[in-house]
Nucleic acid binder design. Structure first.
Lengths: 245, 245
DNA sequence: TGTCCACGTTGACGCAGATCAAAGCCCGAG
DNA sequence: CTCGGGCTTTGATCTGCGTCAACGTGGACA
């Protein structure tokens, strides 16, 4: 069917950045039409990753960052004793691999949670292009900075929130990101297991499951397996702002 | 005594990057002598921040990043209800303010924990210089990437470690950073309160205090107020690798 | 179409760390 | 030198979430 790595050199490639419907979410935000055309040359390779497969592993040599074209990923870090911390879930238009720049090795694992396709962005090339295209350079810096800010949000989750607050924040965050991609804000399928949600939120899977049940009892959401419908966005938000104890 | 903002335009500034004893830890790592000289022009402003004062606050317009010349800072994020998450402690040679690039506003607070001095690096200038100096561009990317990796480490702390593991990891991390700056790996003064340590580690101050006492009973460290002496580095490391339960 | 198995739910119970409370200590201001 | 307030320590008790256990469920595959 598909080769796992495709080299695309056709001049008018249908899915290059300039034609990509994710270009307003992804790396090329704010570039002129002319600059976008230059990006098409930078991002000229794709890679398919089937569900369960690694895009990269901790320790792999760092050579490129990846823009998700379709699909869904998790990133995680493992402790020697096997404990896992999921550091994030990534969806279309988001960038993977920034962790590898500092040490020239990837420092976490990236695993596809559904069959996915990514655009390969060789990092040396990106640095070269961004020396010429100021808007690209600046936007890349924004992407990295936002990753740092996102991480601070996760620290907040893990450091000070109670279990139900964490799950509410998680659902609202997913909802908002699906919305930005043109999907329903209130109805979606989770791509990850309860265990993975728990690892991300610093909770055990049983606690995640109980919190889902509680939200359902309280009429905030409906849950059927991985299908979630949010019935009361305001109610979820209130959970976050209401401090008890 | 000192103006809070000093403009330095003297040609042979004693403390510019090329003469700075932190240049191997800070932004200029890996630059040639020639390139270093160019940096002196970029980093031409200092700012003193007295203990307890903010370097910036969440919401402030983002204009510059800061390299710590002397002193010690914490960064934190506040929830509406007043809960605080300390996102990091920064010491000489480390960079503050990267959180602001993405939104053009700072997204956390940076507070001096002792009288400090920072080098002001106007961000637009940094981007301009790094278009000319590839090594600067690349090193700046590494700095940002390492911040992301550091944040993943904190998530690991908060997500999967028990209280004593967290404190051991914290002490070992401080020890290693002091070492890199030429200070003793085993003896140092904490600049932050038990409450601030707790906020960073996702623990209450009483738990931090008890863990210190426990380590002392076990002969791993001595504690006198803020003065810490590490007696058994290997013992602390063992706490981290030993999984129980 | 039945079987299997990873995933999910729910209940009972235990414990790490939070909370509440009371003292002690150190340092800076007067 | 004394006083006061912020920080720290320690003890007693409480509780949210983890742990352990049993059962339910739906999708993949033969």
């Amino acid at each position: 069917m598909h080769a796992h790595v495709m080299h695309l050199s056709l001049p008018a490639l249908r899915e290059a950045c300039s034609q990509c419907n994710l270009r307003e979410l992804c790396l090329p935000v704010g570039l002129s039409a002319n600059e976008l055309g230059q990006l098409d040359a930078l991002v000229n390779q794709r890679r398919r990753v089937v569900r369960g497969q690694h895009l990269y592993r901790g320790g792999d040599a760092f050579e490129a960052i990846y823009a998700i074209k379709t699909g869904f990923f998790k990133t995680d870090v493992l402790l020697e004793d096997g404990r896992e911390q999921v550091t994030g879930f990534q969806m279309a238009g988001e960038i993977l691999g920034l962790d590898g720049i500092g040490s020239e090795k990837h420092t976490c694992n990236a695993v596809a949670l559904e069959d996915s396709e990514v655009c390969v962005i060789p990092f040396a090339d990106l640095e070269n292009y961004s020396r010429e295209i100021g808007a690209l350079q600046h936007h890349f810096h924004k992407v990295m900075s936002r990753e740092i800010v996102r991480d601070h949000g996760v620290m907040m989750l893990l450091g000070v929130m109670r279990a139900e607050e964490r799950l509410a924040a998680f659902l609202l965050n997913l909802s908002q990101r699906f919305t930005a991609r043109g999907y329903s804000p209130t109805e979606f399928n989770l791509r990850m297991t309860r265990n993975e949600i728990g690892s991300y939120l610093g909770l055990k899977l049983e606690t995640v499951s109980r919190a889902f049940s509680r939200f359902q009892e309280d009429g905030l959401i409906t849950v059927h397996q991985k299908h979630i419908q949010i019935l009361d966005v305001a109610g979820l938000k209130k959970l976050l702002s209401e401090r008890r104890a």
